[in-house]
């Protein structure tokens, strides 16, 4: 028996919006600790990892580990039927071939019930090493979204150059070039507007904007985004940690006492000159 109740159903809507254009089919792994999902896009260029802690739900019951394979476009279509202020309840029986979604209106006078067929997915699960990255940039998520969108007008790739005092995003293409430079901000009253850089060494790497624009669809989930990178490892060395992680924390929107209840992490390798 699996049952998860989320008063802020809008969080699930935002999560689906953040992954459905990147990944078509994926499995939710449900355990007593929470729900998680890991999947690559169809071209296997990027990886997305979503985690929701059990204590982020208002009610969570998972008697035994379950894998719920589903088409995310179908799930997204059904989740869209929930109002933003609905409570969403996910239910699955043991060994069932479907899950039930219940949408409860705030005044509890209306309950909608939908079922989604589950799929048996032959998913490839990748082990992500727990590593530290040499460069970490925290910045407003809407600013990152804007930069990726604007630079897509100029070129296919963004070059991120990071030094202690600031970070520069640049693109070049047939029509010309463009760049945006963000300085590290002093401690401010509004932490959501701050730009924070922590680094061991300077870095300059290029990434495909097509994927970063997909990742930026997670913007409504979090006011800040974290970019974690490490400088290029010389050719022939294991490239193990040479990926960029774009991370959005998932918070409940409790104004008085907001807390992190999970995350979305996207992994992308840098573009390398041929």
């Amino acid at each position: 028996m699996f049952e998860a109740r989320l008063i802020q159903g809008s969080i699930l809507k935002k999560i689906l919006d953040a992954i459905k254009d990147l990944v078509t089919d994926a499995s939710w792994d449900c355990s007593p600790n929470g729900m998680s999902l890991q999947a690559m896009d169809t071209s296997h260029v990027s990886l997305v990892s979503v985690s929701l802690n059990s204590d982020g739900f208002d009610k969570y019951r998972c008697d035994r580990n379950l894998t719920l394979g589903m088409n995310l476009i179908s799930l997204s279509k059904i989740i869209k039927c929930a109002a933003n202020d609905d409570t969403i309840i996910i239910k699955a029986g043991d060994g069932g071939d479907k899950i039930t979604l219940l949408f409860e209106a705030q005044n509890e006078s209306e309950v909608a019930e939908y079922e989604i067929k589950l799929m048996n997915l032959d998913s490839e699960y990748l082990g992500i090493p727990d590593t530290t990255y040499n460069v970490t940039i925290k910045m407003p998520s809407n600013k990152f979204q804007r930069i990726c969108r604007d630079l897509s007008q100029i070129g296919d790739a963004v070059t991120i150059s990071c030094a202690k005092d600031g970070v520069r995003f640049g693109a070049a293409g047939d029509l010309g070039s463009g760049s945006i430079r963000l300085a590290q901000t002093a401690t401010s009253d509004k932490p959501e507007d701050s730009v924070t850089i922590s680094m061991q060494e300077a870095l300059c790497q290029s990434f495909a904007l097509k994927y970063l624009n997909h990742f930026a669809k997670a913007t409504p989930l979090s006011a800040q985004v974290t970019l974690s990178m490490s400088p290029d490892v010389p050719l022939g060395e294991p490239l193990l940690f040479n990926v960029c992680v774009v991370e959005y924390n998932i918070s409940d929107n409790d104004d008085e006492n907001p807390s992190t209840i999970g995350f979305i992490r996207y992994y992308l390798a840098p573009k390398i000159d041929d």
Binding site: M40, S43, H44, V45, S46, L47, E124, Y125, L126, G127, I128, P129, D156, A157, S206, A208, L239, L240, N242, V243, Y267, L268, A269, P270, K271, I272, D273, D274
Partner: peptide, 14 residues
């Protein structure tokens, strides 16, 4: 010309 590496070449299959 830039090439894009696949992400599964970075992480180990479990």
């Amino acid at each position: 010309k830039c090439s894009q590496t696949r992400i599964d070449s970075f992480f180990k299959m479990m």
